[in-house]
């Protein structure tokens, strides 16, 4: 093969590859985005656990701000964009804000969270593989220090939710005014 023919062949292959790569499938607009990890129970998160997370972790100088890996949304935390005029300290926490926080918790360590979800039955030590517990209890270095202590109502609320069923009484105790 002459050198001209060789260059022509290489150019044709390169063009074919480029064309193949650039031909994307038709976008599937019908699909609904899903979390890439197995779900933890959202309804009990929203009803019982979220108020605890919002109170203990969601102040505006901690996780109630956008630059955090774990973002906490809520009435007294970071607000989701809204047309009601809700700002921190005004209005109620919306279901969307609870869901956005839930998604943030799951997305913090998706693989580890997924591994936990797939574990049956789950134990406390399984749940303690997650930063949301180890940082919250300051077992892992945490700039905000010890937001909850092992055995206290807030830790028990989060732990019981992660391992199966949120302890509603402990969750309620954790948000009771002191």
């Amino acid at each position: 093969m002459s050198s001209l023919a060789r260059y022509g062949f290489v150019a044709a292959v390169a063009l074919s590859c480029a064309a193949a790569i650039s031909c994307a499938a038709v976008p599937d607009d019908s699909s609904v985005a899903k979390l890439g990890v197995g779900d933890l129970d959202f309804s009990s998160y929203s009803a019982f656990v979220h108020p605890v997370i919002e109170l203990r972790c969601g102040s505006l100088d901690c996780h109630g701000q956008a630059p955090r890996g774990l973002r906490v949304y809520g009435a007294n935390s970071l607000r989701l964009p809204n047309e009601r005029g809700d700002i921190p300290g005004l209005g109620l926490t919306t279901p969307d804000e609870a869901r956005a926080t839930y998604a943030s918790i799951l997305g913090l360590q998706p693989e580890k969270t997924n591994a936990l979800v797939m574990t049956r039955p789950r134990t406390a030590s399984d749940a303690y593989a997650l930063l949301v517990l180890t940082k919250g209890t300051a077992l892992e270095r945490h700039r905000g220090g010890e937001s909850m202590r092992k055995g206290d109502p807030a830790e028990q609320c989060l732990l019981t939710w992660l391992i199966g069923a949120a302890n509603q009484a402990r969750c309620a105790e954790a948000v009771r005014p002191r």
């Binding site: 100088d61 901690c62 700002i87 921190p88 300290g89």
Partner: peptide, 26 residues
């Protein structure tokens, strides 16, 4: 204050006279 001070030394870290981001500041 409704919530706690989580770790900041300054009120103005969250409380701003001219609010820069109404979704994240007071």
């Amino acid at each position: 204050m409704k919530t706690v001070i989580g770790g900041s030394a300054s009120c103005a870290d969250c409380h701003e006279a001219r609010i820069s981001n109404p979704l994240a500041r007071l």
